[in-house]
Design a protein around this nucleic acid. Sequence first.
DNA 1: AAATGCCTCAACCGCCGAAGT
DNA 2: GACTTCGGCGGTTGAGGCATT
Length: 596
Amino acid sequence: MVAKDEKVDAASPAQAELKKGPWKPEEDMLLIEYVKKHGERDWNMVRKHSGLARCGKSCRLRWNNHLRPNLRKGPFSPDEEKLICELHSQMGNKWARIAAMLPGRTDNEIKNFWNTRVKRLARKGVPLYPADVQSPRPDLLNPYLHHLDAQNNASSSSLSTSSSSNLQLHPPALLSPTTPTSHPLLFPPSASSQTFQDYDVGLQDSMAMYDAALENFRQQQQQQQMFASAMMNDAPSPQLTSSLQRFKRHRSVPNLTISVPPVRHVALHPFSPLGLSTSSSSPMGRSVSVAGSPTTTTSYMHVASSPHSYASSPTGMVLSPTALQLGISMPQPAMRLPLSSSPVVNCRPTYLPRTSSFSFDPMLFDLNPAAAQVTHMQNPTQTLDAIDNELAFSVEDLGISMDHETTGIPPNQPSYHVNGPQQMQTANCNNAGLLDEFLKEAETISIRGEEKAEFSAEQAEAFLKELESDWEQSRLDCSTSGQASMDKPEAQTVREYQMESSMAEPELNNELSNLLEANPMDHSFWNDGSDGLDLGCNNGTPKSQASQPSDDNDHHHQYYQLNHFIDDHLGMEMHQLTGSVPVGASPTWDNMPGIY
DNA sequence: AAATGCCTCAACCGCCGAAGT
DNA sequence: GACTTCGGCGGTTGAGGCATT
């Protein structure tokens, strides 16, 4: 038998002399010398330049896991272990991403640690995650449940003659994959009394844990019911509610209540009627398809790659827990696209959530009426129904931008289309002023899927009038169909309404500011590292600098002031309303795509 | 002391995406 | 568009050490 460290790969003559197995010190020295000279790249050149009889992959692995500087060896500290648990609860088996959060640790180490842990804890029948770790995504728990099942099977076969406590500890109903996050063996019963160090208790404590966990689970269910109820009836205070309603009325988003999730800008380009910021691709950017019209244009969102944006989310895919609670999602999964397919829309990552969802700010519908579709897959609420009915857009209707010269996108990239103002007419869009600006900036644009046409000022004006007419008609339709509510503005033209709104905003802004200042809130939820950045700013420029319109247009300035205010205050207020998700109630991150 | 089982960890393997041709 | 190469990632393997019986 050939010793492991003498193994060679005889699969092909070209690789016959490649060595496998453990590395020897002299091999390490050769590799270190190579990296000193040539850097951490071209691993397949190691053999050529150093004479080391190892494949490139093996060299890279050896360097990354053992030889590179600043590696930390030895057992994980309690803090590291807890961090791994927390990260794993949110990311799953994304070892490279988890390792990126633990300086000096390798993905291999963490993977080994975790796999060992899963087996050990399953064998003991104790929770996989410490009490103070946020509830993991349900799909992450399947391997652990599998281990538990395997453990149970082993126990039941080996302990068939006794009423084993093991068996009592694992009632089949509680191992159901349909309720993994409430499984008492996935979470210890008490979040207050346990630390990571001491939660890992032995089997003798499991009976008490189980009893306590059942009680805890019942309490959680009650909390969830209360939570859902609060979501339906949320109102921080009559005063604030009234102000918000007034605020939204002036933002011309009728029939919205404050239970709308506090997710903010989808996009922020001040001159785009869709509110989409155009940008050329950045080297680190990730392109995500958010809409694919079956017949015309496919639009992509290009996820900004600024360090700030990724600080809290390496993938840039973070979904607001509130949005998740409300079941807001995209109508179709996002798709992984090659960077070279370039794109198009630069979107703040926070709002390009998980693979199948993205969220939006209804506040911006008047900026961005066609940019989002609300679908409610779970926990439908009256509010969401109202949104859906009012704003029955499809992201498939997305797709407008400026010409290549303006955007900097190469001419060989597809041009953009307005798929028609018919989408806008279903909304009470008062973004005509913005559209006006946009059209003045734009040189070419196509409408209703027609061929690209030069857009003159006259054409823009005609387009605007058409929009106004559509909007007016839709509003009248609402009034005559008995759906008008006190939230509806009085009949007026778009421009008049816009002007009134513009004038009213500072006053409302002040009013809301005063209210919110009087009720300080926990801001930590949104202080996730991605705050402070806007779309259209993928170089890490702070929001306050980046998204200000370049001109001194008062209206736009107010828009931005207001939107920043929403970011900084309203979102947090909404978090106060909805953010206290009970342990085990729902995931906060979900199906984040890996780093591409 | 020998047998057995378990644990750790380094290394390998297959797969995938990006980039180049 | 097809193909190849390269790098990265996650799953798996198996040697070696340790603890238990």
